[in-house]
């Protein structure tokens, strides 16, 4: 018996140290997550005791709620354009900043700044000004003879201003790409140039294949991030998702239903569907990665 006492005692101390983290996990993450699953089957309105309504929230979302279907389309469009464009832009800049030029550190810092600012309220407000009527974009277009118009207040263009805002925040994927580029062995390029491969060909057959693990990693992060985008739409549209619900992101609609209309059960159901969607898309990315991601040591 005595032999068992000692390991138990050691473990107790360990568990006690883990306790704050464990309490945090259960109370602030696992607990609420499970509760929200339960609430998604109720009519919880933030104020009163929830009543069980079965799958009515889900049924309504799938069959009746036109705004929900619109929000889903808006979000999918956003993810489809914002994530790849952001990566392309980040990769291009990482290539440029991988060159040997003077003051490289300064350039890298400067190009990273938008990512520090991008999610902020201030930049979203700035965006409204830039793409508004009489804003710099409409002035430049006006200079070239296009009729000055306001992007943020046009249902067909408002989403694009948010996509551009997302693309502009290329800092973190850029840094990750830079690290990836450093990993590509220089001898591969040397060998290729001796064999007469030009820069484009080197990019295609060396850089991209060698970078695929990094591209994959960035892609998964970007997909998840852009599904969860909220602040830019909230600020640029003044909290409405307008004009005409054209920037009504999934998360924004969820927020409006939950906190604006007090339909928290409904919002919880939306949250769980989003989780399933993100899970499915990420799984799809992982599945496809077998066919296009090359790990250097995999072939050995």
């Amino acid at each position: 018996m005595a032999r068992f006492r000692r390991p138990l005692g050691e473990n107790t101390a360990g568990y006690l140290f883990l306790l704050p983290w464990f309490i945090g996990l259960t109370v602030f993450l696992a607990g609420p997550t499970l509760v929200s699953l339960g609430l998604s089957f109720t009519d919880y309105n933030l104020l009163d005791v929830p009543n069980w309504v079965g799958v009515r929230n889900y049924e309504r979302l799938f069959t009746q709620d036109r705004r929900y279907h619109n929000a889903l389309m808006v979000t999918l469009t956003y993810v489809m354009f914002a994530a790849p464009l952001n990566l392309a832009f980040a990769l291009a800049l990482a290539m440029a900043l991988n060159a040997r030029i003077k003051g490289l550190g300064a350039y890298r810092a400067v190009y990273y700044i938008p990512s520090l600012l991008g999610g902020s309220v201030a930049v979203s407000i700035l965006w409204r000004q830039i793409f508004g009527l009489g804003g710099i974009v409409s002035q430049i277009l006006g200079f070239f003879g296009f009729e000055g118009s306001s992007w943020v207040s046009s249902p067909s263009q408002a989403l694009w201003t948010l996509i551009i805002l997302h693309v502009w925040q290329f800092g973190s994927p850029m840094v990750i790409f830079l690290a990836g580029l450093k990993q590509v062995p220089a001898e591969l390029y040397e060998a290729a140039s001796i064999d007469g491969a030009g820069p484009w060909r080197q990019f295609r057959v060396i850089t991209v294949p060698m970078l695929t693990p990094v591209i994959f990693f960035n892609l998964v992060l970007q997909i998840i991030n852009s599904f969860q985008a909220f602040t830019p739409a909230f600020i640029v549209s003044g909290g409405t998702g307008g004009p005409l619900d054209s920037t009504l992101f999934y998360t924004l609609y969820l927020y409006l239903q939950g906190f604006g209309n007090f339909r928290m059960g409904y919002a919880a159901a939306m949250g769980w569907i989003l989780l399933v969607i993100i899970g499915a898309v990420t799984a799809l990315a992982f599945f496809s990665s077998r066919y296009w991601v090359h790990y250097e040591d995999a072939g050995r």
Binding site: S150, V152, S154, G238, P243
Partner: peptide, 10 residues
């Protein structure tokens, strides 16, 4: 027109 009205943000 709608585009002008939608510019209002407060």
């Amino acid at each position: 027109p709608a585009e002008v009205t939608a510019l209002e943000n407060g």
